[in-house]
Nucleic acid binder design. Structure first.
Lengths: 219, 219
DNA sequence: TAGATTGTTAATCGATTAACAATC
DNA sequence: TAGATTGTTAATCGATTAACAATC
Protein backbone atom coordinates (compact mmCIF):
# COMPACT_ATOMS: atom_id res chain seq x y z
CA UNK A 1 0.00 0.00 0.00
CA UNK A 2 1.61 3.16 -1.28
CA UNK A 3 0.98 5.86 1.31
CA UNK A 4 2.04 9.37 0.52
CA UNK A 5 3.43 11.28 3.50
CA UNK A 6 3.68 14.30 1.27
CA UNK A 7 3.72 17.54 3.18
CA UNK A 8 1.58 19.17 0.51
CA UNK A 9 -1.03 16.52 0.80
CA UNK A 10 -4.64 17.63 0.73
CA UNK A 11 -6.49 16.69 3.93
CA UNK A 12 -9.11 14.03 3.46
CA UNK A 13 -11.71 16.20 5.12
CA UNK A 14 -11.07 18.90 2.55
CA UNK A 15 -11.52 16.42 -0.27
CA UNK A 16 -14.83 15.35 1.16
CA UNK A 17 -16.10 18.92 1.12
CA UNK A 18 -14.79 19.96 -2.26
CA UNK A 19 -17.48 18.26 -4.38
CA UNK A 20 -20.12 20.04 -2.34
CA UNK A 21 -18.40 23.39 -2.81
CA UNK A 22 -18.29 22.71 -6.51
CA UNK A 23 -21.96 21.86 -6.89
CA UNK A 24 -23.04 24.84 -4.79
CA UNK A 25 -20.90 27.23 -6.83
CA UNK A 26 -22.41 25.83 -10.00
CA UNK A 27 -25.85 26.56 -8.56
CA UNK A 28 -24.80 30.12 -7.76
CA UNK A 29 -23.47 30.49 -11.29
CA UNK A 30 -26.80 29.32 -12.66
CA UNK A 31 -28.51 31.97 -10.57
CA UNK A 32 -26.20 34.55 -12.05
CA UNK A 33 -24.13 35.34 -8.93
CA UNK A 34 -20.76 36.73 -9.92
CA UNK A 35 -19.20 36.75 -6.47
CA UNK A 36 -19.65 34.76 -3.30
CA UNK A 37 -18.00 35.21 0.09
CA UNK A 38 -16.70 32.28 2.08
CA UNK A 39 -19.28 33.15 4.73
CA UNK A 40 -22.19 32.99 2.32
CA UNK A 41 -20.98 29.82 0.62
CA UNK A 42 -20.49 28.25 4.02
CA UNK A 43 -23.99 29.17 5.13
CA UNK A 44 -25.44 27.27 2.18
CA UNK A 45 -23.47 24.18 3.09
CA UNK A 46 -23.38 24.28 6.88
CA UNK A 47 -19.64 24.94 6.91
CA UNK A 48 -17.74 27.82 8.53
CA UNK A 49 -16.19 30.53 6.39
CA UNK A 50 -12.72 29.95 7.85
CA UNK A 51 -12.98 26.32 6.89
CA UNK A 52 -13.71 27.17 3.29
CA UNK A 53 -10.91 29.73 3.08
CA UNK A 54 -8.48 27.23 4.56
CA UNK A 55 -9.60 24.47 2.22
CA UNK A 56 -9.20 26.69 -0.81
CA UNK A 57 -5.82 27.93 0.39
CA UNK A 58 -4.39 24.43 -0.06
CA UNK A 59 -4.90 24.86 -3.77
CA UNK A 60 -3.72 28.43 -3.99
CA UNK A 61 -7.19 29.62 -4.89
CA UNK A 62 -7.52 33.30 -4.04
CA UNK A 63 -10.48 35.52 -3.46
CA UNK A 64 -10.58 39.26 -3.25
CA UNK A 65 -10.86 41.01 0.08
CA UNK A 66 -14.15 42.90 0.22
CA UNK A 67 -15.69 40.94 -2.68
CA UNK A 68 -15.14 37.29 -1.93
CA UNK A 69 -14.53 34.75 -4.66
CA UNK A 70 -15.43 35.18 -8.27
CA UNK A 71 -17.82 32.31 -8.89
CA UNK A 72 -16.75 31.57 -12.44
CA UNK A 73 -13.03 31.36 -11.75
CA UNK A 74 -13.65 29.46 -8.51
CA UNK A 75 -15.77 26.93 -10.37
CA UNK A 76 -12.99 26.53 -12.93
CA UNK A 77 -10.35 26.13 -10.24
CA UNK A 78 -12.25 23.45 -8.35
CA UNK A 79 -13.07 21.73 -11.60
CA UNK A 80 -9.37 21.46 -12.25
CA UNK A 81 -8.58 20.30 -8.72
CA UNK A 82 -11.22 17.61 -8.93
CA UNK A 83 -9.80 16.45 -12.22
CA UNK A 84 -12.97 17.26 -14.14
CA UNK A 85 -11.20 18.90 -17.06
CA UNK A 86 -10.66 15.58 -18.77
CA UNK A 87 -13.00 12.80 -19.86
CA UNK A 88 -13.08 9.49 -18.02
CA UNK A 89 -14.04 6.20 -19.59
CA UNK A 90 -15.95 3.87 -17.33
CA UNK A 91 -17.35 0.38 -17.26
CA UNK A 92 -20.16 -0.87 -15.08
CA UNK A 93 -19.81 -4.42 -13.87
CA UNK A 94 -23.09 -6.01 -12.86
CA UNK A 95 -26.32 -5.05 -14.60
CA UNK A 96 -28.60 -5.51 -11.60
CA UNK A 97 -30.86 -2.85 -10.15
CA UNK A 98 -28.05 -0.61 -9.03
CA UNK A 99 -25.93 -1.13 -12.13
CA UNK A 100 -28.81 -0.26 -14.42
CA UNK A 101 -29.68 2.83 -12.39
CA UNK A 102 -26.08 4.00 -12.56
CA UNK A 103 -25.94 3.42 -16.30
CA UNK A 104 -28.84 5.84 -16.62
CA UNK A 105 -27.48 8.33 -14.11
CA UNK A 106 -27.19 11.67 -15.82
CA UNK A 107 -24.72 13.08 -13.30
CA UNK A 108 -21.92 11.03 -14.81
CA UNK A 109 -22.30 12.06 -18.39
CA UNK A 110 -22.71 15.76 -17.67
CA UNK A 111 -19.43 15.81 -15.74
CA UNK A 112 -17.33 13.97 -18.27
CA UNK A 113 -17.71 10.41 -17.08
CA UNK A 114 -18.72 8.16 -19.95
CA UNK A 115 -20.00 4.64 -19.48
CA UNK A 116 -18.51 2.68 -22.38
CA UNK A 117 -19.44 -0.88 -21.53
CA UNK A 118 -21.66 -2.73 -19.12
CA UNK A 119 -20.67 -6.25 -18.16
CA UNK A 120 -22.68 -9.10 -16.72
CA UNK A 121 -22.52 -12.89 -16.75
CA UNK A 122 -26.25 -13.45 -17.22
CA UNK A 123 -27.13 -14.59 -20.76
CA UNK A 124 -30.52 -12.93 -20.46
CA UNK A 125 -28.83 -9.58 -19.96
CA UNK A 126 -25.90 -9.88 -22.37
CA UNK A 127 -26.69 -8.05 -25.59
CA UNK A 128 -29.29 -5.75 -24.03
CA UNK A 129 -28.94 -2.01 -24.37
CA UNK A 130 -29.24 0.07 -21.19
CA UNK A 131 -29.37 3.82 -21.68
CA UNK A 132 -27.61 3.42 -24.98
CA UNK A 133 -24.87 1.20 -23.61
CA UNK A 134 -24.57 -2.46 -24.56
CA UNK A 135 -24.23 -5.26 -22.03
CA UNK A 136 -21.27 -7.57 -22.74
CA UNK A 137 -20.21 -10.93 -21.38
CA UNK A 138 -17.89 -10.35 -18.44
CA UNK A 139 -16.15 -13.62 -19.17
CA UNK A 140 -14.96 -12.22 -22.48
CA UNK A 141 -13.71 -8.98 -20.97
CA UNK A 142 -10.11 -9.52 -22.09
CA UNK A 143 -11.25 -9.71 -25.72
CA UNK A 144 -13.37 -6.60 -25.45
CA UNK A 145 -11.27 -4.11 -23.52
CA UNK A 146 -7.98 -2.67 -24.67
CA UNK A 147 -5.49 -2.36 -21.84
CA UNK A 148 -5.50 1.14 -20.42
CA UNK A 149 -8.72 2.00 -22.23
CA UNK A 150 -10.80 2.24 -19.07
CA UNK A 151 -10.18 4.72 -16.26
CA UNK A 152 -12.81 3.75 -13.71
CA UNK A 153 -14.88 0.65 -13.05
CA UNK A 154 -18.15 0.74 -11.16
CA UNK A 155 -18.64 -2.47 -9.21
CA UNK A 156 -22.31 -3.37 -8.81
CA UNK A 157 -22.12 -7.14 -8.77
CA UNK A 158 -23.40 -9.35 -5.98
CA UNK A 159 -21.11 -8.97 -2.97
CA UNK A 160 -19.47 -12.36 -3.38
CA UNK A 161 -18.40 -11.64 -6.97
CA UNK A 162 -17.05 -8.15 -6.38
CA UNK A 163 -13.48 -8.96 -5.39
CA UNK A 164 -12.76 -11.35 -8.22
CA UNK A 165 -14.38 -9.01 -10.72
CA UNK A 166 -12.30 -6.08 -9.54
CA UNK A 167 -9.13 -8.15 -9.58
CA UNK A 168 -9.81 -9.23 -13.13
CA UNK A 169 -10.41 -5.64 -14.16
CA UNK A 170 -7.20 -4.61 -12.51
CA UNK A 171 -5.38 -7.26 -14.50
CA UNK A 172 -6.83 -5.55 -17.54
CA UNK A 173 -5.43 -2.19 -16.60
CA UNK A 174 -8.22 -0.58 -14.58
CA UNK A 175 -6.97 1.04 -11.41
CA UNK A 176 -9.87 3.03 -10.01
CA UNK A 177 -12.98 1.43 -8.57
CA UNK A 178 -16.27 2.87 -7.41
CA UNK A 179 -17.57 0.10 -5.21
CA UNK A 180 -21.33 -0.13 -4.66
CA UNK A 181 -21.19 -3.52 -3.01
CA UNK A 182 -20.49 -4.19 0.65
CA UNK A 183 -17.45 -6.26 -0.30
CA UNK A 184 -14.06 -5.11 1.01
CA UNK A 185 -11.72 -4.48 -1.91
CA UNK A 186 -8.77 -3.44 0.30
CA UNK A 187 -6.78 -6.50 -0.61
CA UNK A 188 -6.23 -5.26 -4.18
CA UNK A 189 -2.92 -3.46 -4.26
CA UNK A 190 -2.10 -0.13 -5.89
CA UNK A 191 -5.54 0.89 -7.03
CA UNK A 192 -7.89 3.71 -6.03
CA UNK A 193 -11.06 2.65 -4.28
CA UNK A 194 -14.11 4.67 -3.36
CA UNK A 195 -16.78 2.89 -1.37
CA UNK A 196 -20.44 3.79 -1.75
CA UNK A 197 -22.22 0.92 -0.09
CA UNK A 198 -25.84 1.88 0.41
CA UNK A 199 -26.54 0.00 3.62
CA UNK A 200 -23.79 1.85 5.53
CA UNK A 201 -25.68 5.10 5.36
CA UNK A 202 -28.97 3.62 6.46
CA UNK A 203 -27.22 1.96 9.41
CA UNK A 204 -25.90 5.31 10.52
CA UNK A 205 -29.36 6.83 10.28
CA UNK A 206 -30.80 3.99 12.32
CA UNK A 207 -28.17 4.55 14.97
CA UNK A 208 -28.97 8.24 15.18
CA UNK A 209 -32.70 7.64 15.29
CA UNK A 210 -32.15 5.31 18.20
CA UNK A 211 -29.71 7.52 20.03
CA UNK A 212 -31.12 10.85 18.89
CA UNK A 213 -27.77 12.45 18.10
CA UNK A 214 -26.15 14.00 16.13
CA UNK A 215 -28.18 15.17 13.16
CA UNK A 216 -25.39 15.29 10.61
CA UNK A 217 -21.78 14.20 10.33
CA UNK A 218 -20.79 17.83 10.34
CA UNK A 219 -22.57 18.68 13.59
CA UNK B 1 -29.45 22.95 15.06
CA UNK B 2 -29.30 20.82 18.17
CA UNK B 3 -25.69 19.83 18.70
CA UNK B 4 -24.85 17.44 21.49
CA UNK B 5 -21.62 18.25 23.29
CA UNK B 6 -22.14 15.10 25.31
CA UNK B 7 -18.92 13.79 26.76
CA UNK B 8 -20.03 10.22 26.04
CA UNK B 9 -20.61 11.05 22.44
CA UNK B 10 -19.47 8.51 19.89
CA UNK B 11 -16.84 9.93 17.52
CA UNK B 12 -18.03 10.33 13.95
CA UNK B 13 -15.09 8.37 12.66
CA UNK B 14 -16.12 5.44 14.82
CA UNK B 15 -19.65 5.58 13.47
CA UNK B 16 -18.30 5.48 9.94
CA UNK B 17 -16.40 2.28 10.65
CA UNK B 18 -19.05 0.47 12.62
CA UNK B 19 -21.18 -0.67 9.67
CA UNK B 20 -18.08 -2.19 8.09
CA UNK B 21 -17.20 -4.02 11.30
CA UNK B 22 -20.73 -5.34 11.42
CA UNK B 23 -20.78 -6.67 7.89
CA UNK B 24 -17.35 -8.27 8.24
CA UNK B 25 -18.35 -9.99 11.47
CA UNK B 26 -21.46 -11.32 9.78
CA UNK B 27 -19.22 -12.77 7.05
CA UNK B 28 -17.04 -14.41 9.68
CA UNK B 29 -20.12 -15.83 11.35
CA UNK B 30 -21.26 -17.28 8.03
CA UNK B 31 -17.86 -18.94 7.69
CA UNK B 32 -18.31 -20.45 11.11
CA UNK B 33 -15.65 -18.46 12.99
CA UNK B 34 -16.47 -18.35 16.68
CA UNK B 35 -13.80 -15.86 17.69
CA UNK B 36 -11.95 -13.04 16.00
CA UNK B 37 -9.13 -10.86 17.31
CA UNK B 38 -9.07 -7.12 16.78
CA UNK B 39 -5.91 -7.64 14.75
CA UNK B 40 -7.50 -10.13 12.38
CA UNK B 41 -10.71 -8.14 11.99
CA UNK B 42 -8.63 -5.06 11.30
CA UNK B 43 -6.60 -6.83 8.65
CA UNK B 44 -9.76 -7.65 6.72
CA UNK B 45 -10.82 -4.02 6.79
CA UNK B 46 -7.54 -2.14 6.54
CA UNK B 47 -7.89 -0.81 10.09
CA UNK B 48 -5.49 -1.14 13.02
CA UNK B 49 -6.30 -3.43 15.93
CA UNK B 50 -5.97 -0.62 18.47
CA UNK B 51 -8.47 1.38 16.50
CA UNK B 52 -11.04 -1.39 16.65
CA UNK B 53 -10.51 -1.97 20.36
CA UNK B 54 -10.89 1.71 21.04
CA UNK B 55 -14.02 1.97 18.92
CA UNK B 56 -15.61 -0.96 20.68
CA UNK B 57 -14.62 0.35 24.09
CA UNK B 58 -16.95 3.34 23.60
CA UNK B 59 -19.81 0.91 23.76
CA UNK B 60 -18.51 -1.21 26.58
CA UNK B 61 -18.08 -4.19 24.28
CA UNK B 62 -15.53 -6.55 25.76
CA UNK B 63 -13.41 -9.27 24.28
CA UNK B 64 -11.43 -11.91 26.04
CA UNK B 65 -7.68 -11.59 26.39
CA UNK B 66 -6.03 -14.45 24.49
CA UNK B 67 -9.19 -15.26 22.44
CA UNK B 68 -10.39 -12.00 21.01
CA UNK B 69 -14.07 -11.25 20.52
CA UNK B 70 -16.80 -13.84 20.31
CA UNK B 71 -18.26 -13.23 16.88
CA UNK B 72 -21.85 -13.98 17.77
CA UNK B 73 -22.05 -11.70 20.77
CA UNK B 74 -20.06 -9.00 18.98
CA UNK B 75 -22.48 -9.11 16.06
CA UNK B 76 -25.38 -8.79 18.49
CA UNK B 77 -23.76 -5.90 20.31
CA UNK B 78 -23.06 -3.90 17.14
CA UNK B 79 -26.53 -4.71 15.87
CA UNK B 80 -27.91 -3.09 18.98
CA UNK B 81 -25.57 -0.10 18.76
CA UNK B 82 -26.56 0.49 15.15
CA UNK B 83 -30.19 0.34 16.11
CA UNK B 84 -30.88 -2.72 13.97
CA UNK B 85 -32.92 -4.54 16.60
CA UNK B 86 -36.06 -2.72 15.56
CA UNK B 87 -37.90 -2.41 12.26
CA UNK B 88 -37.89 0.87 10.35
CA UNK B 89 -40.64 1.99 8.04
CA UNK B 90 -39.46 3.90 5.01
CA UNK B 91 -40.82 5.78 2.04
CA UNK B 92 -39.03 6.43 -1.21
CA UNK B 93 -39.76 9.77 -2.81
CA UNK B 94 -39.02 9.84 -6.52
CA UNK B 95 -39.49 6.73 -8.66
CA UNK B 96 -36.72 7.47 -11.13
CA UNK B 97 -33.77 5.21 -11.87
CA UNK B 98 -32.25 5.50 -8.43
CA UNK B 99 -35.55 5.33 -6.58
CA UNK B 100 -36.58 2.17 -8.39
CA UNK B 101 -33.20 0.55 -7.78
CA UNK B 102 -33.44 1.35 -4.09
CA UNK B 103 -36.96 -0.05 -3.90
CA UNK B 104 -35.55 -3.33 -5.14
CA UNK B 105 -32.45 -3.20 -2.96
CA UNK B 106 -32.38 -6.33 -0.86
CA UNK B 107 -29.98 -4.89 1.72
CA UNK B 108 -32.78 -2.84 3.23
CA UNK B 109 -35.29 -5.57 3.78
CA UNK B 110 -32.82 -8.08 5.21
CA UNK B 111 -31.74 -5.55 7.86
CA UNK B 112 -35.19 -4.51 8.99
CA UNK B 113 -35.80 -1.53 6.74
CA UNK B 114 -39.16 -1.83 5.03
CA UNK B 115 -40.21 0.32 2.13
CA UNK B 116 -43.90 0.97 2.71
CA UNK B 117 -44.71 3.53 0.03
CA UNK B 118 -43.11 5.01 -3.05
CA UNK B 119 -44.15 8.51 -4.06
CA UNK B 120 -43.91 10.32 -7.34
CA UNK B 121 -45.78 13.10 -9.11
CA UNK B 122 -45.77 11.49 -12.56
CA UNK B 123 -49.20 10.11 -13.53
CA UNK B 124 -47.52 7.45 -15.64
CA UNK B 125 -45.79 6.08 -12.56
CA UNK B 126 -48.54 6.49 -9.97
CA UNK B 127 -50.30 3.17 -9.41
CA UNK B 128 -47.38 1.06 -10.63
CA UNK B 129 -45.95 -1.64 -8.42
CA UNK B 130 -42.16 -1.68 -7.94
CA UNK B 131 -40.76 -4.68 -6.13
CA UNK B 132 -44.11 -5.22 -4.50
CA UNK B 133 -44.50 -1.61 -3.39
CA UNK B 134 -47.11 0.69 -4.87
CA UNK B 135 -46.34 4.14 -6.24
CA UNK B 136 -48.59 6.85 -4.79
CA UNK B 137 -49.22 10.47 -5.69
CA UNK B 138 -46.87 12.65 -3.69
CA UNK B 139 -49.39 15.47 -3.78
CA UNK B 140 -51.77 13.35 -1.72
CA UNK B 141 -49.15 12.39 0.83
CA UNK B 142 -51.03 13.94 3.74
CA UNK B 143 -54.03 11.71 3.03
CA UNK B 144 -51.94 8.59 2.76
CA UNK B 145 -49.46 8.77 5.63
CA UNK B 146 -50.37 8.71 9.30
CA UNK B 147 -48.22 11.12 11.30
CA UNK B 148 -45.35 9.29 12.92
CA UNK B 149 -45.89 6.23 10.76
CA UNK B 150 -42.69 6.66 8.78
CA UNK B 151 -39.20 6.58 10.30
CA UNK B 152 -37.00 7.31 7.29
CA UNK B 153 -37.53 8.88 3.88
CA UNK B 154 -35.27 8.21 0.94
CA UNK B 155 -35.03 11.27 -1.28
CA UNK B 156 -34.43 10.36 -4.91
CA UNK B 157 -36.24 13.17 -6.65
CA UNK B 158 -34.65 15.56 -9.13
CA UNK B 159 -32.34 17.88 -7.27
CA UNK B 160 -34.58 20.91 -7.53
CA UNK B 161 -37.52 19.11 -5.90
CA UNK B 162 -35.59 17.54 -3.04
CA UNK B 163 -35.79 20.33 -0.47
CA UNK B 164 -39.49 20.97 -0.79
CA UNK B 165 -40.22 17.25 -0.77
CA UNK B 166 -38.19 16.73 2.39
CA UNK B 167 -39.82 19.72 4.08
CA UNK B 168 -43.26 18.39 3.29
CA UNK B 169 -42.30 14.99 4.68
CA UNK B 170 -40.98 16.63 7.81
CA UNK B 171 -44.29 18.42 8.22
CA UNK B 172 -45.82 14.96 8.12
CA UNK B 173 -43.67 13.67 10.95
CA UNK B 174 -40.67 12.18 9.14
CA UNK B 175 -37.39 13.22 10.72
CA UNK B 176 -34.70 11.10 9.10
CA UNK B 177 -33.66 11.49 5.48
CA UNK B 178 -31.38 9.45 3.27
CA UNK B 179 -30.57 11.95 0.56
CA UNK B 180 -29.52 10.58 -2.84
CA UNK B 181 -29.74 13.93 -4.58
CA UNK B 182 -27.05 16.57 -4.68
CA UNK B 183 -29.40 19.05 -3.01
CA UNK B 184 -28.35 20.49 0.34
CA UNK B 185 -30.98 19.70 2.95
CA UNK B 186 -29.15 21.47 5.78
CA UNK B 187 -31.75 24.17 6.04
CA UNK B 188 -34.30 21.75 7.47
CA UNK B 189 -34.14 22.00 11.24
CA UNK B 190 -34.10 19.19 13.78
CA UNK B 191 -33.96 16.21 11.45
CA UNK B 192 -31.33 13.57 10.75
CA UNK B 193 -29.76 13.69 7.33
CA UNK B 194 -27.44 11.23 5.65
CA UNK B 195 -26.08 12.24 2.26
CA UNK B 196 -25.31 9.67 -0.40
CA UNK B 197 -24.91 11.71 -3.52
CA UNK B 198 -23.37 9.53 -6.20
CA UNK B 199 -21.37 12.16 -8.06
CA UNK B 200 -19.34 13.11 -4.96
CA UNK B 201 -17.60 9.77 -4.93
CA UNK B 202 -16.75 9.83 -8.60
CA UNK B 203 -15.32 13.35 -8.21
CA UNK B 204 -13.01 12.11 -5.50
CA UNK B 205 -11.87 9.24 -7.70
CA UNK B 206 -11.21 11.63 -10.56
CA UNK B 207 -9.13 13.82 -8.27
CA UNK B 208 -7.05 10.88 -7.11
CA UNK B 209 -6.57 9.58 -10.64
CA UNK B 210 -5.28 12.97 -11.60
CA UNK B 211 -3.10 13.54 -8.57
CA UNK B 212 -2.22 9.90 -7.94
CA UNK B 213 -2.80 10.03 -4.20
CA UNK B 214 -4.09 8.70 -1.89
CA UNK B 215 -5.61 5.36 -2.78
CA UNK B 216 -8.26 5.26 -0.09
CA UNK B 217 -9.71 7.61 2.50
CA UNK B 218 -8.11 5.50 5.16
CA UNK B 219 -4.60 5.64 3.70
C1' DT C 1 3.11 -21.56 33.21
C1' DA C 2 3.90 -18.79 28.75
C1' DG C 3 2.21 -16.02 25.50
C1' DA C 4 -1.40 -13.90 22.89
C1' DT C 5 -4.64 -10.42 23.18
C1' DT C 6 -7.18 -7.45 25.72
C1' DG C 7 -8.68 -2.29 27.51
C1' DT C 8 -6.73 2.01 28.56
C1' DT C 9 -3.39 5.65 29.02
C1' DA C 10 -0.56 9.06 27.11
C1' DA C 11 1.72 10.78 23.02
C1' DT C 12 1.13 11.96 18.44
C1' DC C 13 -1.02 13.41 14.61
C1' DG C 14 -4.47 15.89 11.93
C1' DA C 15 -8.47 19.01 11.35
C1' DT C 16 -11.11 22.99 12.88
C1' DT C 17 -11.62 27.56 14.33
C1' DA C 18 -10.80 32.11 16.60
C1' DA C 19 -8.17 35.96 15.99
C1' DC C 20 -6.18 39.43 13.27
C1' DA C 21 -3.16 42.05 10.14
C1' DA C 22 -3.45 42.80 5.23
C1' DT C 23 -6.14 44.50 1.46
C1' DC C 24 -9.48 45.73 -1.94
C1' DT D 1 -11.66 56.72 3.68
C1' DA D 2 -14.38 52.92 6.15
C1' DG D 3 -15.55 48.48 6.40
C1' DA D 4 -16.09 43.92 4.63
C1' DT D 5 -13.61 40.01 3.61
C1' DT D 6 -9.51 37.93 2.68
C1' DG D 7 -5.26 34.44 3.84
C1' DT D 8 -2.66 32.80 7.57
C1' DT D 9 -1.17 32.02 12.23
C1' DA D 10 -1.72 29.95 16.59
C1' DA D 11 -4.84 27.72 19.79
C1' DT D 12 -8.08 24.29 20.30
C1' DC D 13 -10.29 20.29 19.53
C1' DG D 14 -10.74 15.51 18.07
C1' DA D 15 -9.00 11.05 16.27
C1' DT D 16 -5.29 7.69 15.87
C1' DT D 17 -1.80 4.89 17.61
C1' DA D 18 2.22 3.21 20.37
C1' DA D 19 3.03 1.37 24.65
C1' DC D 20 1.99 -1.56 28.34
C1' DA D 21 -0.01 -3.59 32.53
C1' DA D 22 -3.80 -6.77 33.12
C1' DT D 23 -5.70 -11.18 32.04
C1' DC D 24 -7.45 -15.39 30.11
Amino acid sequence: MKTSKDKNRIPEATMRRLPRYFLQIKRLLDEGSRYVSSKKLGDYLGVKGTQIRKDLSYFGVFGKARYGYETLSLAKAIKKILGLTKQYKMVIVGAGNIGRALASYSGFHTCGFDVKYIFDIDDKKIGNIISGVKVYDFNKIEEILDKGEIDIAIISTPENKALQAAQRLKDNGVNAFYNFTSAELNSIEDVFIEDAEISHGIFKLAHRLRGKWPRKESD
